[in-house]
């Protein structure tokens, strides 16, 4: 095997490992929601090719209000779904669209766009 081939092979494998690690195993930043007046746990989630923040920590049994602000017109992110809570919202671009519900049971729930390409996690404690 020629030197260039060895270099390409090794860097390819390394790159593949990095890709796998970065997308599957690296720790994501968890955002804990602040509680505002009236005991509502509230946060602003920006939607642009993804949700940021996308891992959200809330307390069980208290109402949650997630304000989605869609900063793009790409059709992908038009809807946000919370399948476990039967909630959905159509996000009007550049407009604050609140989604409200009260998670009762602790656990990890997903939220996503209609196609499941954009995803976020709601961790209920």
């Amino acid at each position: 095997m020629a030197t260039d081939q060895i270099i390409v092979t090794l860097s390819g494998i390394t790159l593949a490992v990095i890709v796998g690690w970065y997308f599957w195993f690296s720790e994501k930043k968890v955002t804990r929601l602040a509680t505002v007046e009236g005991g509502v746990q509230e946060a602003l989630i920006k939607v642009k090719g993804g949700y940021s923040p996308d891992v959200i920590l809330v307390d069980a049994g208290r109402p949650v209000r997630l304000n989605f602000l869609r900063e793009e017109t790409a059709a992908c992110s038009e809807q946000v779904l919370f399948p476990d809570f039967g909630k959905q919202a159509t996000l009007t671009p550049f407009k604050n669209v609140p989604v409200e519900f009260t998670p009762d049971k602790p656990g990890t729930y997903e939220f996503q766009c209609a196609m499941g390409m954009l995803r976020g996690k709601l961790i209920v404690q």
């Binding site: 997308f23 690296s26 642009k48 090719g49 993804g50 949700y51 996308d54 390409m117 954009l118």
Partner: peptide, 15 residues
């Protein structure tokens, strides 16, 4: 833009 936003969130999509 889609790829970058997803990358920041440690995720990847069609973009």
């Amino acid at each position: 833009t889609g790829a970058w936003a997803a990358f920041k969130n440690h995720s990847a999509n069609m973009h």
